[in-house]
Design a protein around this nucleic acid. Structure first.
Length: 456
DNA sequence: ATGTGC
């Protein structure tokens, strides 16, 4: 029997640097796929179905697919969906359950050679002393918050955190440090999603692909550190609640005439504020641990979310909601939204983690990013399913590989197998793809030295 | 991602 035609054979190469798809399946909505021929061939039926799902929200103007694309809930992880802000939908699946999930990256002047294998372990120990990791992990630094204090934080973002706890950090080095929440909006306490879980979790890592990492920057020869985490049980509870209110499974959405439209906009802001504060609390803990071991402070490079919907003006598509699900904003120099920020003439840093056995990257957007709705990938992209990896990968061999490479994991060097290097595509492949498409250029390459991961 | 599943 003949092999059925690949669903994306109808995609045509566009000289601007992407595969273009627009047909009956997409309802003539343009889809731009930033993939190499090999990555295009890897798109399976499930991801194709989810790409089609992504075109079906009311008022969708464009769908962008990033090279780390893989199946998500309803729509792919690694997708960007632009909907008309005046009349179109705002959708939950295209943000995901981990509202505001993202990265913070920091640098130092400490020569990487100072991080001996023993010091890497001591650093991990110092971080683990300060931060709880894994499913259900709770805060060690913000204990016994009252509901009033918690509400002040998620309504007031990073400035409220500073006001309440006197933390000092350079908030100009954040994508957003406060997303506005309407005072009339009420947090859906007690609803089935139980967002109250989040109260005791603000300042904890979580599980899955979340991590903290000590890195060697190849360009500066110095130590860097990174944190990847999100909105924990709080964002999950909000997403669950609004998906339930929409009553359409993973593909639920609200249009401006819905009574829940503003509610979900507010929920995204509150979830994002939580995630930003969570990253800053963890960064402070990592920074303290770093100072203890390396006698120097870390300096924030940037903080950015890759699961968010934000209102943006696009030169071609106008006033739109930009849903980025596992996709990173990429504003180049001169983008109007960067006016009067430190990034006005350079573009903002783009933080792209690799696996804990592979490189992470910091990029800068180029003018060509207009073609991808100012977005790039958010990671390497999963290659092996968690269940397949847990069943088939050789744990002993992988732990030996980590020891040989000098990557220390937690304090016991036990590698979470469904998060190990082989589970992810090579980072260089997805980075080459966005570089060749003219979306961004590489600023820093970061090699993992010490990795902190929670357990499911 | 998630007090992860009938």
């Amino acid at each position: 029997m003949e092999k059925p035609a690949h669903a994306l054979e109808g995609a045509s190469w566009d000289a601007r640097g992407f595969y273009a798809l627009s047909n009956r399946d997409t309802g003539n909505v343009p889809v731009r796929l930033f993939l190499t021929p090999s990555l295009l061939g890897d798109v399976d039926d499930e991801v194709y179905r989810q790409i089609i799902n992504a075109t079906r929200f009311p008022g969708t103007k464009l769908v962008v697919i990033t090279p780390d694309v893989h199946a998500g809930y309803g729509v792919p992880v690694g997708s960007v969906i632009l909907t008309d802000a005046a009349t179109g939908a705002i959708a939950m699946g295209p943000v995901g359950y981990d509202i505001g999930c993202g990265m913070i990256s920091a640098r130092s002047n400490v020569p990487a050679q100072e991080a001996t294998p023993e010091k890497r372990r001591v650093f991990n120990q110092a971080v683990m002393h300060r931060v709880e990791m894994g499913t259900g992990s709770r805060s060690r630094r913000l204990q016994n918050l009252t509901k009033i204090e918690f509400e002040q934080l998620v309504r007031g973002g990073a400035p409220a955190f500073t006001a309440l706890f006197g933390s000092v950090f350079d908030r100009s080095r954040c994508e957003r440090n406060l997303l506005p929440v309407d005072s009339e909006w009420q947090i859906p306490w007690g609803e089935p999603g139980t967002p109250e879980r989040g109260i005791n979790q603000i300042g904890s890592l979580g599980a899955g692909n979340h991590f903290m990492e000590l890195q060697h920057c190849l360009q500066t020869g110095t130590l860097f550190a990174q944190v990847h985490t999100g909105s924990r049980g709080f964002g999950h509870g909000l997403a669950t609640n609004y998906l339930r209110l929409a009553g359409a499974g993973d593909l639920g959405f609200f249009t401006p005439d819905s009574p829940h439209y503003r509610g979900y906009v507010n929920a995204v802001s509150a979830g994002a504020n939580y995630a930003i504060i969570n990253r800053l609390v963890l960064f402070e803990a990592v920074s303290e641990a770093f100072a203890e071991v390396f006698s120097e402070k870390l300096e924030i490079v940037y903080e950015i979310s890759h699961n968010l919907v934000q209102r943006e003006t696009h030169p071609e598509f106008g006033d739109v909601w930009v849903h980025r699900k596992g996709a990173t904003r990429a504003f180049p120099a001169g983008h109007p939204a960067l006016a009067a920020t430190p990034w006005e003439s350079t573009g903002h840093p783009i933080l792209i983690p690799g696996s804990n056995f592979d490189r992470s990257y910091i990029l800068r957007a180029l003018p060509g990013a207009v073609n991808s709705a100012f977005s790039v990938n958010h990671g390497s992209g999963r290659r092996l399913s968690r269940t397949w990896a847990s069943k088939h990968l050789n744990v002993r061999q992988i732990e030996k590989d980590y020891r040989t490479a000098g990557v220390r994991v937690n304090v016991d060097d036990r590698v979470p197998i469904d998060e190990s290097g082989p589970c992810y595509k090579p980072a260089s492949e997805v980075i080459d793809c966005v570089v060749r498409a003219g979306l961004a250029q590489v600023e820093y390459e970061l090699k993992p030295l010490a990795s902190l991961k929670g357990k499911d």
